[in-house]
Nucleic acid binder design. Structure first.
Lengths: 111, 111
DNA sequence: CATAGTACATTGTTATACTATGTATTTTAT
DNA sequence: ATAAAATACATAGTATAACAATGTACTATG
């Protein structure tokens, strides 16, 4: 059918929700980039490309919503762990509020 | 606070949801562009710029999700009314399904 | 008669997900 | 042993879509 339109649309919806999802997942937890991808994929079946997560995390860090620290591994490549900052938590609250509103609005126009 | 980040984010969230909202509103009704803006604003408090709705409707028409017809007015500028096509209705169903899933997923990671 | 509102439309800008590509290490399969 | 897959980071380029700005044209109102 209109497979392609739908796929583009899904990608667009992701654009907005991704940062929201990532911040949500980071709330109360520390994850590194690759782990975030796996974790979100497992929890939500949403697949995030690596070329998406790393620029996204850099953006979130520049905006001071997350902080990061390198952690050396006994074996393998060091991992960059991300933590929510206070600003990040506050921002997440605002986003949550908007999301809940949006959810309600869409529910309303659907019937 | 982080007003600007939040605003940008809201704009991004809109990117995906707008076409979904418009198709939903058009289900069972005929509206012209300007009316859509007013109607959605009134129902959802979401403000859509004119520079957003007209290109959007053209896109939806090109994708054959909506059809349009000019209706002359006794007074004033003629109005271009939009109607959902069959493809549009089917596409809307797929979108609805994805949206419901997404809603559930986000609910899940929030706790 | 100027301003606000109605109604269409286009151009240029900006933000961001994704593809492709690259580096480097470790684990698993043949 | 060695090739392939998985882990872990990163960047450059592309495509999409909302929005601001701008323009046209008509109508209603103060």
């Amino acid at each position: 059918m209109n497979e392609e339109f739908i796929n583009k649309w899904k990608s667009q919806v992701k654009k907005g929700t991704l940062s929201f999802i990532v911040l949500n997942v980071l709330k109360g937890n520390e994850y590194y980039g690759y782990e975030l991808i796996e974790n979100i994929k497992q929890k939500t079946a949403i697949e995030i490309a690596e070329g998406t997560i790393y620029p996204l995390m850099n953006r979130l860090k520049k905006e001071k919503l997350v902080d990061s620290k390198w952690v050396e591994q006994e074996t393998g490549i060091p991992r960059k762990y991300y933590v929510l900052t206070e600003i990040g938590e506050e921002t997440l609250k605002s986003m949550q509020k908007y999301w809940d509103e949006l959810e309600g609005l869409i529910k309303k126009i659907k019937k």
